[in-house]
Every structure is written in structure tokens, then in C-alpha cells.
């Protein structure tokens, strides 16, 4: 029998157990962002009057990827999203500090044209908000005010391609002169996405784009988001964890105005490093 040699193996095993424990600490495997950075926030703080809503937030948004921002109500995720195209500027008491860049350029540079910034960083809101105009004019509005086209034929083409990219063309091509508000909720939301695409943005921000939609319309939008990722960088705020898990490549978890954890979506939802993240995504008391 080889029983004697087994005894001597005990010590070796203890050593191996110790070694394996050293080899698998969770922190060291935390994923770092990979790929070109489209937008980046450094030490971003936001104040509404005296009240601070964001505390030194750092986040890098990768090109041609979907980044989802999740967290409980009031955690600052929408505030951060609105910083990315200076939507907070319209609130008088709001003050933003820190550095936010788009392709390395400071977007809070006083010399920068905010209207042009918002054309490059488009936004889609929770409730579909088409203009009370025709479907055609909803899309043509942005290109017209930004002077993106020179003649009618070019504008027609841009309207068509925008509606095609938003997956709406087939449904509306025969009624472009009808009012945008006459479409269904899901179609209206895709119209808003088409409107955002028409100004040829680099980044599309979405603030709970599906929360007012039924599951089928939601699936259509999610399919669209996945498709748009090839040409655009997308940041989405969502209350649906399942949606974040389905559509995004990276996820940032906000809590009380801070980013608690950020990483690859699959890691965040299968093996979060932080207890607060885990408690939130599994629906536990924080």
C-alpha cells in the first residue's frame, strides 16, 4: 500500500491550499476598461444650490459600446447623464465641477458651442416626446437648424436613413406627413431615437428609454440599441437591472452620488466585488 506516502503529502497539500487561496483574490481580477475612450468624467461633482448630488465621480465611456448606469432613485445616475451633454446648464442653481471630455476635449470649455455639443451628444428621454409636427419634420428639425444639408434631396435622404437606422422606416414611409404624435408609444420612442441620430451624433444618451413601453416595444428598442452600438457610443440610465444586463457591455452602479462599482456587465451581474452592488442588484436591504 502507498499509505505511508499519503501522510507525507498532507504538508504539501496544506501548502497548495495556501497557494491557491493567494491565486484567487477577487480584487485582482477586476476588469479594466478596454478600447478607445469616447467620453470621460474626472472628479465630477454636481451641486444643486447647497445640496451636492454627485461626489467626485470618475467614469470612462468606451467607444462603440453601451454603458449602463444603474442605482436607486436619487443616486445621481441621471444627474451624471445630464452632465454629458450639459443638460444641467438649463437649471439655474446647478453647478458642475471636475472635467468631462468628449474625445479629449473639455465639454465645459466656455468657448464651446453648447448647441453643437448637443448635436454630437444626443439624448432620448423616458417619455417619448415627439414634436407636434409631421414625422418628416420631427427628423428634419435638427439637420435644418444645424444646417447639415444643402438641398431637399439631401434632407430627404437623411430623414430616410435616420428612420432606417432607428428601425422605423418600413412602418412610416407611407405616412411621413402624418403627425409624429399619432404613432404608438414604441414607434414614438424610435422616432425620438431617429431624431437624435439625424444630427449625426457620436454619443447617444438614453434616460430610461423603455420605462413607458410594453415588453414587445422594449425588445424592439433593445434590439435597436444593440444595432446602433456599431456606429455610436451609447450611455443608458435604466431602472431595470435585467435591461442593463441585456443591452450593455459595461455597467456603473451609483449610490448616494458616488460610483460604487464599475466594470464589465457580465462581471457586475454574476460576481460583483462590492457588497452594496450585490445588495442592490439582488434586491436586498442596503
Amino acid at each position: 500500500m502507498e499509505v505511508q506516502s499519503i501522510e507525507s503529502k498532507k504538508a504539501e497539500q496544506t501548502r497548495q491550499v495556501e497557494q491557491a487561496k493567494k491565486m484567487s483574490p477577487a480584487e485582482e481580477t477586476a476588469s479594466q476598461p478596454q478600447g478607445p475612450i469616447k467620453m470621460s468624467g474626472k472628479d465630477v461633482s454636481v451641486f444643486y444650490g447647497e445640496k451636492q448630488a454627485l461626489f467626485d465621480v470618475n467614469l470612462e465611456i468606451l467607444e462603440n459600446s453601451v454603458t449602463s448606469l444603474i442605482g436607486p432613485s436619487g443616486c445621481g445616475k441621471s444627474t451624471f447623464l445630464r452632465c454629458l451633454n450639459r443638460m444641467n446648464d438649463v437649471i439655474d442653481i446647478c453647478r458642475v465641477s471636475g472635467l468631462i471630455t468628449l474625445e479629449g476635449e473639455d465639454i465645459y470649455n466656455p468657448e464651446l458651442d453648447v448647441v453643437e455639443l448637443r448635436a454630437r451628444v444626443g439624448m432620448v428621454f423616458q417619455k417619448p416626446n415627439p414634436f407636434p409636427k409631421s414625422i418628416y419634420d420631427n427628423i428634419a428639425y435638427g439637420p435644418r437648424i444645424h444646417g447639415l444639408t444643402t438641398d431637399r434631396a439631401e434632407l430627404d435622404e437623411l430623414v430616410e436613413s435616420s428612420l432606417k437606422k432607428a428601425g422605423l422606416w418600413e412602418e412610416v414611409k407611407d405616412r411621413l406627413t402624418e403627425s409624429g404624435t399619432g404613432l404608438s408609444g414604441g414607434q414614438q420612442q424610435r422616432l425620438c431615437i431617429a431624431r437624435a441620430i439625424a444630427t449625426r451624433p457620436d454619443v447617444i444618451l438614453m434616460d430610461e428609454p423603455c420605462s413607458a413601453l410594453d415588453p414587445i416595444a422594449t425588445a424592439t428598442i433593445e434590439e435597436l440599441i444593440d444595432d446602433l452600438r456599431k456606429n455610436y457610443t451609447i450611455v443608458i440610465v435604466t431602472h431595470s437591472m435585467q435591461q442593463a444586463a441585456r443591452v450593455s457591455q459595461r455597467t456603473a452602479f451609483f449610490h448616494l452620488g458616488k460610483i460604487i462599482e464599475e466594470g464589465e456587465t457580465s462581471q457586475i451581474f454574476t460576481n460583483p466585488r462590492n457588497k452594496k452592488t450585490q445588495d442592490y442588484i439582488t434586491g436586498r436591504y442596503g
Binding site: M1, K9, A20
Partner: peptide
């Protein structure tokens, strides 16, 4: 996990007896 790792390594002993 420590206990689990010990079990994982100790399987070798069973294999050794099986061989003989």
C-alpha cells in the same frame, strides 16, 4: 472555501489507494 480546497486536494489520496 478553505474546506472545499482541502477536499479538492485530498482526492489524490483516494486515487493513490485506488491505484494500489
Amino acid at each position: 472555501t478553505e474546506k472545499a480546497l482541502s477536499v479538492w486536494y485530498a482526492d489524490e489520496e483516494i486515487d493513490a489507494i485506488y491505484n494500489s
